[in-house]
Simulated assay, not measured.
Amino acid sequence: MPRPSKRKAASSADVDLSVSPAPKKSRTKQIDKVGHLFDTYANKSIDLIDPAGIESLCSDLGVDHTDIKILMLAWKMKSEKQGYFSKDEWRRGLKCLGVDTLPKLKKAVLGLDKEVMKSGYFEDFYNFAFQYCLTEDMQRSVDIETICELLNIVLGPQFPTQVNLLVEYLQIQSDYRAVNLDQWSSFYRFFKEVNFSDLGSYDSMLAWPVILDSFVEWLKERENKS
Rank of each mutant, 00 (worst) to 15 (best):
S12K: 08
L17N: 14
P21N: 06
A22C: 12
K24D: 03
K24P: 01
S26K: 10
T28G: 08
I31T: 11
H36E: 07
L37I: 00
F38G: 00
Y41Q: 10
A42Q: 11
N43D: 03
K44G: 06
I46Q: 09
L48T: 03
L48W: 01
A52D: 14
G53I: 07
E55W: 12
V63W: 06
M72S: 13
S86P: 00
K87T: 02
E89G: 03
K95N: 09
C96N: 11
C96L: 08
G98F: 02
G98W: 06
G98M: 05
V99C: 02
T101V: 00
P103H: 07
K106Q: 09
A108K: 03
E115F: 06
S119G: 02
G120W: 01
Y121R: 14
D124G: 13
F125H: 00
F130K: 10
Q131K: 11
L134I: 05
E136L: 11
Q139T: 00
S141M: 08
V142T: 01
F159W: 03
N164A: 10
L165E: 05
L170Y: 04
L170W: 05
Y176E: 14
Y176W: 14
Y176S: 12
A178P: 00
S185E: 07
F187I: 05
F187M: 06
R189E: 15
R189P: 09
F191D: 08
S197P: 01
L199Q: 04
G200S: 15
S204T: 13
S204C: 03
A207V: 03
W208E: 06
W208H: 10
F215Q: 04
V216F: 11
E217G: 15
N224K: 15
